[in-house]
Design a protein around this nucleic acid. Sequence first.
DNA 1: CCGATGTTTCAATAATTTTTGAACTTAGGC
DNA 2: GCCTAAGTTCAAAAATTATTGAAACATCGG
Lengths: 173, 173
Amino acid sequence: MKLPSEKSAGRRKSRPTFESLQPHEIELADFFVRMAGILGVPRSVAEIYALLYISPGPLDFDHIQGRLGMSKGSVSQGLKFLRGHEMILSVKEKGARRERWQPTPSLAASLVALLRSQVLPALEQAQPSLQRVLADVQQHGANPEVVERLTRLNRWNSRALELAPLLLPPPGA
Amino acid sequence: MKLPSEKSAGRRKSRPTFESLQPHEIELADFFVRMAGILGVPRSVAEIYALLYISPGPLDFDHIQGRLGMSKGSVSQGLKFLRGHEMILSVKEKGARRERWQPTPSLAASLVALLRSQVLPALEQAQPSLQRVLADVQQHGANPEVVERLTRLNRWNSRALELAPLLLPPPGA
DNA sequence: CCGATGTTTCAATAATTTTTGAACTTAGGC
DNA sequence: GCCTAAGTTCAAAAATTATTGAAACATCGG
């Protein structure tokens, strides 16, 4: 099933044409796009993941670009993101020049990595900040209820920070 | 501590001036803005919440607008959002015309409500969609690995839907 | 090294989301 | 009922975020 098309005279190497997405592929992509949205992950990234997820084997750069009809730049950045969060793996065939991509075996692990990368830095950065705010408020002899609130917030943050390694274990554990 | 300012001749009712935020208030707002960002909640909403959180008592519309220097529209929409997610309460004093707002006692409960409202609808909407995709893929006699992946995805979604009431209990429970 | 293929970068553009403010609605006091 | 203060709505503007594509870079086989 290959449309020859594209004037293609004798010259080799006219860039191949790709089928556009099938209805069921679109539906799965919509699902991933929606879920990704919750975590603030851009559409193009979710689409790439969905395509790899529903494809019977690893795909290379050009296939991804062709089937999704998106720019090189987006594909490159999307793959970078997915790689960075260990959501995809490259399968480099021996004699081949190009890399081919497929989803990491565990989607669950991927999601954990994603969450981790969003939440942990925020919690870490917050720690000193929250402590300063609490100190400030106590100094200025503020309302006891406010002091209480901020104390609780601080405790929360610390606990979350302690628990994080358990709930969102780093890749090597 | 009240700046008289504003040419204010004898006429009553020049709109009052409000102090701009103190450094520690800004720092707390930054914290909330950052956390809200993870959940896709806009800056203005986080700022309003932060202000109520660090204020010694409930604040009315004009105070919020004045101290944060934001538009009426934003304050109105922000309060609507926070109300909708049960993150703030109004304290209506007897003889008073205007409502005054303060944070709900439990920030934890508020966050749960927020998460719930984002995640649950997505999971529910996904269910039939995922089932259709799986059926489609099975019909077209696709790669067994893909079928396996989609089956797992379906199971996950169902489980999440079952567990949701436990992890993200609705307000009345 | 060279030339060609494959990929990344990043400034410009497009798309999306948030904020504003003026017109409109609602509710209370008289 | 009318008038006014209080709050809401929503179209337009501003701000932010995502995407594109052309130029730069990297890497491999010869």
